[in-house]
Design a protein around this nucleic acid. Sequence first.
DNA 1: TTGAACTTTCAAAAGTTATTGAAATATATT
DNA 2: AATATATTTCAATAACTTTTGAAAGTTCAA
Lengths: 168, 168
Amino acid sequence: MKLPEAKAQFIQAWGLLGAQWGVNRTMAQIHALLLIAPEPLSAEEIMEALDISRGNANMNVRELMNWGIVEKVLVPGERKEFFIAEKDIWKAGTAIARERKKRELDPILKVLLQLNKVEGDQKDKHVKAFRETIQNIQKFAHQTDAALNAFIKSEEHWFYSTLLKVIR
Amino acid sequence: MKLPEAKAQFIQAWGLLGAQWGVNRTMAQIHALLLIAPEPLSAEEIMEALDISRGNANMNVRELMNWGIVEKVLVPGERKEFFIAEKDIWKAGTAIARERKKRELDPILKVLLQLNKVEGDQKDKHVKAFRETIQNIQKFAHQTDAALNAFIKSEEHWFYSTLLKVIR
DNA sequence: TTGAACTTTCAAAAGTTATTGAAATATATT
DNA sequence: AATATATTTCAATAACTTTTGAAAGTTCAA
C-alpha cells in the first residue's frame, strides 16, 4: 500500500470511529490528519486535504482545541495560524477521557444523588425497585468514576517518570 | 420528590447519557424504564409510558435484546410478550462494553494492522510520521483492548463465585 | 488610517437519523 | 378455517445535525 492511500484509509477509519462515539465525523478526520502530519498544517491545508469549507474547518479545529488535543502554533515569518495534534496518543486518550467524564459522568452522578431522595413507602414495590436500581447504578457509577480518575492520572505519572529519566 | 417525577427524571437523564454515547435516545429511555419497573412491561405499556409509536418501541426493544441487556419473558395466561431489563447494572455494563468493543475497537485494530504495511522510504519524514503514529495508536489500542477484556471477564468471575455460594 | 491577509460567525441548505403508522405477517383462539 | 390478537416491516415524513459560503470581524504592516 502506498502512503497516500494509507493516509486516506486511516482518516476514514478514524472518522468512522469518532462518529460511533458521538463525535462529529469531520472533527475526528481533522484529528487524524493532524496526527499523521509531520509538520503543522494551516486552515487552508486542512480544507484542501479533507475537501471541506472554511467554516467547517474553523469550527472543528476550535472544538479539538477545546478538548485539549490540538493546539495552535505560530510559524515564524507566517501570518497564518498552524495547527498540530498531540502526538502522544496516551495523552490524547486521557484528555478525551477527562473531557467526557466531565460532560457525561459527572452530571449523571449529580442526578443520581438527587433521585435517592425520592419519597414513599418502602413496602411499595415500585418505590423499592426504583430505589434499588438507583443505588446500584450509583455504586457502579462511582466505581467507573474511580477507574477513570486512575486512568487520567496515570498519564501524569507516566509523564513525570519519563521526564525524570530525560532530565536525569 | 415524588416517585413519578423521580422516574421521569431518571428516564430523561439516562436518555441523554445514551445520546452522548452515540446510542439512540429512545433505546436508552426504554432501558431506563425497564430498569426501574418492578414487573415486566408489554410493548403497549412502553409505548404509553414514553409516548412513542408501536414501530419505534418494537425496533428499539429488539436492539436492546441484541445488546443482551433486555429480554423477552412470557407471562402465563397472557398472549402478549413482556420485557425485562438485566437489573444487575454491572452485567449490563459489561454487556455494553463487549458489544461496543466488537463494533468499534476490533475493526480499528484490523485497519491498524493493515496500515503497518505501508511502503516507502523510512527517511521520508511523511512516511516516518505516519508509521510512528500508527504504531503508537496500535500500542494504545492493544492496551485498551486488554483492559476491556479484563473488565468484561470480571463479570464472569463475579457470576461464578456468586453462583458457587448459592448452590453451596 | 487604510487595506490586505486572515479568522470567525451564522443563516440557509444539505445530509443524516429517528419516528410514525398503516399494511403485511405471524400466532393463538374459537 | 375463520377470526381475533399481536408483532414486524417499511416508505414517508419529521426532527435533528452538519456543512457551506458569504459577510462581518480582527490583526497587522505600511
